[in-house]
Amino acid sequence: MAVEPFTVGPQLEERVFRAGLQALRRAIGDADLLTFPKRPNGTPMLLRQGFFERLLSAQLELSSSPASDVSAAQTDVRHLGLAQLLFIRCSHLEAQFAPTMTTQTSFLASVDSALDEQLARRLASSPGSVQIPTGAVADVSRAVILIYGVQSEIKEVACEKWLFRSGGLEGLLDLPSCALCKLAEVIPAYAYSQRRSAEGEAAAALGGSGLRKTGRV
């Protein structure tokens, strides 16, 4: 049964996005942060594994790390898992690097890109998942993280399933498992839309509905 939409905000989109990163990290968890991939012969795949061991155990800060160390570790970012990438990103949400610290800024940009890729893989990893085109990965990732952020702000209701639409992509986002599934026949879910004010703030409008196979609400 449909319910009247209600609004969260207005809030700056970046604030909602940061809240979404933290909520997604809680959903994924911090297990196996210090478990790293290995080559078939058993040797570490990461060339700078020690750097990440210290970074992921909060023994190292990017801002105080030599640029040469950060630059050398940047090529290893693509081998990190989703939980590891979320830990690094959430640990630097308030980071403000000096204009001269371009290496640290570039490192976090690589983390963002790898996070988008790993999140897309997670969303599409379950049976019956929606397949995400390569060109849509960044947009899908941001939209998913914003939904996690909006859900974390809701006090009136708690819904684990959200109707997801981004471009021509449609699916049902399950927040606890972080899976993007094809729409079922009738499933209680919430839909998310966004309005922008003149000041650039975002208001999230939410409405409950029963989703049908067509995905219309």
Rank of each mutant, 00 (worst) to 15 (best):
Q11K: 15
S166D: 06
S65C: 13
A205T: 07
T75C: 11
A203D: 01
R196F: 12
A19S: 13
I132M: 07
D174H: 12
A2G: 06
T103S: 10
A143E: 13
R78V: 11
E185L: 15
L169K: 09
L21S: 04
L82F: 08
T105I: 07
M1G: 13
T105C: 10
A179E: 06
I88C: 04
G167F: 10
P5K: 02
F87G: 00
L85Y: 07
R48L: 08
V16T: 03
F164C: 02
H79Y: 15
R196Q: 13
F107T: 00
D30T: 13
P10C: 12
R89C: 06
T100D: 06
E170C: 12
D32W: 08
G149E: 11
F52V: 01
G20C: 05
F6G: 02
F164E: 00
H79I: 07
A19F: 07
A204G: 05
G29H: 06
T105Y: 00
A189I: 02
A179L: 00
L211C: 09
A184K: 08
A67C: 12
Q11F: 15
A138I: 10
G171V: 01
S64F: 09
R122S: 10
A158W: 13
C181D: 01
V8G: 03
Q96C: 04
S106F: 05
A98Y: 04
S197E: 11
I132C: 05
L86P: 01
L34W: 08
S71M: 10
L46I: 03
V144P: 00
H92W: 03
Q118V: 08
S193H: 09
L211W: 00
R15E: 14
F51A: 03
V144E: 02
Q11R: 15
G215L: 06
S91C: 09
Y148F: 15
S91Q: 08
K155S: 13
S126M: 11
A109E: 11
S64R: 11
A73E: 03
L146D: 00
Q104R: 04
S141W: 02
L175M: 04
G20E: 00
L24I: 05
H92Y: 10
A95W: 03
L175K: 01
E185C: 15
A198L: 11
R216L: 03
